[in-house]
Amino acid sequence: AEDTGVRVELAEEDDGKKASIALKLWVEDHKKLKGKYKETGAIEFTFDLEKDVPEVVSQEMVESGFFHESDAKIVGKSIRDRVALIKWRRERTASSIV
């Protein structure tokens, strides 16, 4: 994968059942963060696998003052990639049980 300087990980163990899951976004390149959040490295949030849209969440982060508008796309993509992986793992687990 391309290095975006933004990593998204699970902030909790995925039990495979809950639609809503805690994710943690790590910012390796602090220049991406705005103003008072420059010293921040991690942003934890809850993501609903059924209802939430990664790009909407990244836009909310921009509106909350964490990121520059120009980075919304990178952040959204990082969340999208992680969410896709979580969903893929869940599907694989579900099919192995069957």
């Binding site: 942003i43 949030f45 909350s64 964490f66």
Partner: peptide, 27 residues
């Protein structure tokens, strides 16, 4: 604590915290 909580108008809660030095050196 350096941890802060930001709530977006849409209702989503963001918990922000600094990354420990050790964590950054991992990559």
């Amino acid at each position: 604590s350096a941890t802060a909580q930001v709530v977006h108008s849409a209702g989503r809660k963001f918990i922000v915290s600094p990354v420990p030095e050790s964590r950054l050196k991992e990559h």
